[in-house]
Amino acid sequence: MTLREFMVQRQPALCERWLDLLLADYGEETAANWRRERDPFANPIGHTFTTEAPRLVEAVSGDGKFDTVAAAALEAIIKIRSVQELAPSRAIAFVYMLRDVIRGELGTELARGAHATALATVDRRIERLALLAFDVYVRCREQVFRLRQDELKRSVASLLRRWHGSELPEPASEEVVHLSPPPNHAVRR
């Protein structure tokens, strides 16, 4: 079996290990809560993590869909972590942890340097993912600050309109290009 086949076959186990590490950031009690509750609205974070993690594992195990699928999945997770009380390094560290996860789960299969070339490819993808994670994180943080500015402007909008006439410029945040495209429905009428 190739490394990719192993990764596909053991994907649930890989994701479980990875989620353990990801959720460990939040302490035991919260990690347990976020694993237990299945309702996506009662537990949006647990739901997001469990839905997106397999997509990222899938992406690094290699099927050519790296950019779109991985980017959307990554954005979903990092957006959440960008407004939690995590240092930037910690907010994106989970991407790097995937390397340990693969080595831990597939220890026997990778023993004595087996699949070294394939593993190198996977590692390179993880590194790309980490770079991408950095972009997404910074973009989210920039948006937080833009939102603060927008809100201040809106809070005195009727005064600003009187000074500037009705041609008030649109808030900056509306021009933000989102990494993942907005859902199709949003533009459909």
Binding site: T30, N43, P44, V83
Partner: peptide, 8 residues
């Protein structure tokens, strides 16, 4: 606040 942040 707990659902979105996880602080016990």
């Amino acid at each position: 606040f707990y659902i979105g942040g996880g602080d016990p």
